[in-house]
Design a protein around this nucleic acid. Structure first.
Lengths: 158, 158
DNA sequence: CTGCAGATTGAGCATTATGCACCCCACTCC
DNA sequence: GGAGTGGGGTGCATAATGCTCAATCTGCAG
């Protein structure tokens, strides 16, 4: 469903400017990028018409909501029940995201928790889902490289 | 450095409104939440003074930048060299984020790639870092639950 | 080389939003 | 009772927005 859209140099410059200052107005972006206000406005509406920008929720840190602990739960699933397990995971509030993988595990479940006990409980909830065979929990201890796309933007902008 | 800040019901309502419409103006948020413009403005400036909102880059989908493939590389590292490995990973453009873990692996490296060959190359780059002992690559095949914080926001907002 | 379609730009204009200051009120904690 | 905190209301000068129109300026096919 997403992104038949491919960002070019100009889009990259706009996105870079927005990364520098997410609350920047269209005018400010235009100034920063040396583009006209019209162009920036047109590009931006194309970008979000195309659904190129993901949910604002991505910018919300669970820690601020009182969930300072994060962990990744590698999950093995009885194959036929993948969808059911997905639905069950979706119903757990502490589940931030779930990726279907090829490789070591079937699912990578990203969870947040209030504290160690809470995490233990959530991990238990996941293990109790019918169709889940095995889980391995890895606690996030440090953010070594914070999510960034800048290097990719830079290669596009040359 | 982050978040001595803890969001309350009002913050949660504001954040929810912004999730519904990321480009909403302060006025629109005030209307949607039934709060006054003053309050919304004050809350928002507190939120970003406190650094409660993470980088705008989180909203940029690598797929739009021409990197439609994503993978997680579980990495085992010679412990003493963790920082050096972190720095080396930081230098690889295709590395989106790196988490330091407790558990199965030492590092969880999230990478993007243009295609299968590109991914293979990136995985090789990681494995070639001095201090990296072993890697396991898991390709992301499906987004089963897209990143979301809504359920957590809802519990706060009651 | 010529010409076309799409993108970029500059300008204008009515409408809204912003940032800030000031004041008031309700609630809580001493 | 008094001080402090946080939400709400109002006003105002300045700035941004959304939109349209017309004029270049591309890239590219013929």
């Amino acid at each position: 469903m997403p992104s038949t859209h491919r960002a070019d140099r100009i889009d990259a410059r706009i996105l870079t400017a927005l990364s520098d200052d997410p609350r920047a107005t269209v005018m400010a972006v235009a100034e920063r990028t040396g583009l006209s206000r019209n162009t920036v406005q047109a590009r931006l509406s194309k970008l979000d018409d195309a659904g190129a920008l993901r949910s604002f929720e991505r910018r919300i840190d669970p820690a601020v909501l009182g969930y300072p602990l994060q962990a990744y739960v590698l999950t093995n699933v009885t194959q036929r029940k993948l969808d059911r397990v997905g639905a069950a995971l979706d119903a757990i509030p502490e589940v931030l995201e779930v990726h279907g993988l090829s490789g070591v595990a079937d699912l990578l479940v990203h969870v947040a928790a209030k504290d160690a006990d809470d995490l233990y409980r959530v991990a238990g909830d996941i293990l109790n889902i019918k169709g889940v065979k095995r889980t391995t929990t890895a606690l996030v201890m440090r953010e070594m490289v914070d999510y960034r796309v800048r290097p990719l933007l830079d290669t596009i902008a040359e």
